[in-house]
């Protein structure tokens, strides 16, 4: 590859309200990272963040995509959906703030820890959202040279 740059990508389609498949994408991500020989602590952080992002897509969005991209230097998990969008991102980033519907809460989700938990595990975070258009969440992790 040019300049030693090499990457692989995996894309998972996530349906809104599909609790039966909840966690499948993030557990596949975990398996992939383990096979790639990523340090186990980093695997854990990525998996936790990916799981929260996956659950956000299931609970809050009208459906979207969870994407894993790995390069020799970094891991990027992207969650992209087509709506409904987050009206106040700062508020959404606060611990305990939740707009999860009753059905999600009954299943034990929606404690308002999703985004804060992603932030806690990520090295960097980029979130863009427009009400009525959708949300793009990019979660960055650095792979430290051993």
């Amino acid at each position: 590859m040019a300049g030693g740059y090499y990457s692989i990508e995996q894309v998972f389609h996530i349906k809104a309200g599909d609790f039966a498949s909840a966690g499948e994408a993030s557990s596949q991500i975990k398996k992939t990272l383990k096979q790639l020989g990523i340090d186990s602590t980093l695997v854990r952080r990525v998996t936790i963040a990916a799981y929260e992002a996956e659950m956000n897509l299931i609970i809050h969005s009208i459906g979207g995509e969870l994407k894993l991209k790995v390069t020799p230097q970094s891991i990027i998990v992207t969650a992209e959906d087509k709506g409904p969008g987050i009206p106040d991102i700062d508020l959404a980033m606060q611990e305990g703030y939740s707009t999860a519907p009753e059905i999600a809460r009954e299943l034990g989700f929606g404690a308002g820890m999703g985004l804060p938990n992603i932030k806690r595990n990520a090295d960097r975070l980029n979130i863009q959202s427009k009400v009525g258009e959708g949300t793009l969440l990019e979660i960055y992790f650095d792979i430290k040279a051993r």
Binding site: G4, Y6, S7, I8, K34, Q35, L36, G37, I38, V70, P72, I143
Partner: peptide, 12 residues
């Protein structure tokens, strides 16, 4: 379970 010690090789 890891495919290769070298990450680029593992990715390939």
């Amino acid at each position: 379970m890891k495919l290769d010690d070298d990450i680029v090789e593992a990715m390939k």
